[in-house]
């Protein structure tokens, strides 16, 4: 099944700082909850793994990440990640385009557009929750991205951001995550969005 997610994250950092992080794939990967780059195969080609928990299914995906395009001028990154879980019962693919838009005055916005395709058990078991889960994963990605940029700097704020990053769970299985998922679900119930 296919899920399309679009997100915008506003930052107080200049676009040039944010771009430094966004264009560094191994570093930006650490912002993705549960994800990890294992090795760089060659330029723009990496292998990595992701652990996801959707509903009752916890799955470890191993696969490749390919940076299709890095455009310094437009400050845009296009990447594709695809993998299979180790038992071969599910597969997932994510195509993502992320770019930065400078705001008037200080700061910028990180915009992201992604299409996530899942097949197999993950789709069967987690189908109903995929939209919310994808949404939450990307929301957390935005938060981590802010921490990561902050951590790149100096001073007290950077220190606390580094601590938060260290606490960041490596799998998507935290109580806070489940909590925000439930909150999102309830929010959707109260103000139903139009879906096709």
């Amino acid at each position: 099944m296919k899920v399309k997610v679009e997100k915008t994250f506003p930052f107080e950092f200049p676009a040039t700082t944010a771009w430094k992080l966004l264009s560094d794939l191994p570093l930006v990967a650490t912002c993705m909850p549960g994800a990890e780059i294992i090795e760089k195969v060659y330029d723009h080609h990496y292998t990595g793994k992701v652990k996801v928990k959707v509903g009752p299914a916890t799955m470890a995906f191993k696969g490749k990440i390919i940076v299709k395009n890095i455009d310094d001028l437009k400050q845009e990154l296009q990447m594709i990640g695809k993998g299979q879980d180790l038992k071969g019962s599910s597969s997932a693919e994510m195509e993502m385009t992320a770019w930065l838009v400078p705001k008037d005055g200080e700061g910028c916005e990180l915009k992201g557009k992604s299409t996530i395709t899942v097949n197999g058990k993950l789709a069967s078991l987690g189908g109903r929750m995929m939209t919310q889960v994808s949404d939450q994963i990307l929301a957390q990605f935005g938060k981590n991205f802010v921490h990561q940029i902050t951590a790149l700097g100096e001073g007290k704020a950077a220190e606390s951001a580094r601590e938060k990053l260290a606490e960041q769970a490596k799998t998507l299985n935290g109580i806070s995550f489940a909590g925000s998922l439930a909150a999102g679900f309830i929010k959707n119930l109260i103000s139903p969005k139009k879906k096709d």
Partner: peptide, 14 residues
């Protein structure tokens, strides 16, 4: 089934 042929209802949750 979804458009990829995944069966979306093969547990007693669904």
């Amino acid at each position: 089934f979804d458009e990829e042929g995944n069966l979306l209802g093969n547990t007693f949750m669904d």
